[in-house]
Design a protein around this nucleic acid. Structure first.
Lengths: 175, 175
DNA sequence: CGCGGGTGTTCCGTTTACGGAACGATGGCA
DNA sequence: TGCCATCGTTCCGTAAACGGAACACCCGCG
């Protein structure tokens, strides 16, 4: 399960430094605005420290970005053709929802084994032409279009137009 | 004792606890899987500690969710009846997309002035019964349902069932 | 040349997040 | 009923993240 997740903390430092210098802000000034010691920031950017949630929050606020922007590591699920980034997990009463961003290279296709009973998938297309759904009855949708299907049977995804498909995919897992 | 952990930290604890119990996992088991001490997790969930990035990373991995899912904070847009949290902004080729999470209290309703021409809105309902769309031709959708409408005319949102509406709203702005 | 104000790094004492162990509470099971 | 496993919390010594100060360095300016 551990997979080859590169140590998340290692990426935060360079990202802070990049965001900071992109705004033309000095380390000293960021420390002042964030109410942190310069030693803290120096170590954080160098990756020699393991920052606290409070510290990260202060830095993000002083940089004017969301905390997510500092720690976001795209947990990418890379399939044969489909790449999905998990954006968010909702936990709403009778069901759990996972919201993904999906990319499919032009012309590529992929099938997926069935999930548990009652699971449905909902896709909203940003760009390209998506064909998706049950293998024997797929639907198609272009930019702005929407598709939904039950995922408890074998289903597939394909970019049938001449360009890459970008879409958001919502997977609903009932209790 | 006062602790008084600033903002962000306060929300992480309950979220971890919610995600953990949603999977039917005990605190002890999560501690074991994450390679953390039970004291660390107990304090984290209670909000009496200020966790380290490493700790958060371990917890997220053991829960099988992205680190973002633990620390994400929302930029909320609060209307008369509708509360929307901006989740993500996409900038894909010919259009820009804003992905929101939308909540409407049971029985509440709200109208929205027109946006620019060509703007469309796409809603996927998680819970409750949503009535939304052009004022003269709204549609309705329940859990798992989908609605879309053009936003360049006056439009509205309403929770018509007896319970709150939870939905994801995608707004598409063509160039 | 100083000199003052800026940079980022390093040192150091204090604070605190960490894991391990002990704790009381709870829940089967014989 | 006792027994034992597991639950989540609390206590405590250690490791380390924290802020402040000292540091070397680099500029613009008189």
């Amino acid at each position: 399960m551990d997979a080859a997740l590169p140590d998340g903390a290692a990426h935060v430092g360079p990202r802070v430094r990049a965001l900071r210098s992109a705004q033309g802000m000095s380390l000293s000034e960021l420390a002042r605005r964030a109410g942190l010691g310069k030693a803290t920031l120096s170590g954080l950017e160098a990756g020699t420290r393991n920052p606290t949630l409070d510290t990260l929050h202060s830095v993000a606020a002083a940089l004017g970005v969301a905390l997510t922007a500092l720690v976001s590591e795209s947990t990418r699920i890379q399939g044969a053709a489909v790449a999905m980034d998990l954006l968010r997990v909702f936990d709403d009463g009778p069901a759990t929802y996972e919201l993904y961003r999906m990319r499919i290279p032009a012309g590529a296709a992929q099938t997926s084994p069935p999930h548990h009973a009652g699971v449905t998938e909902h896709a909203t297309v940003f760009a390209g032409e998506l064909r998706a759904g049950a293998l024997d009855a797929p639907g198609t949708a272009g930019p702005g279009g929407y598709l939904e299907w039950t995922a408890d049977t074998p289903h597939g995804y394909a970019a049938i137009g001449g360009q890459d498909v970008h879409a958001s995919l919502l997977i609903r897992y009932p209790r």
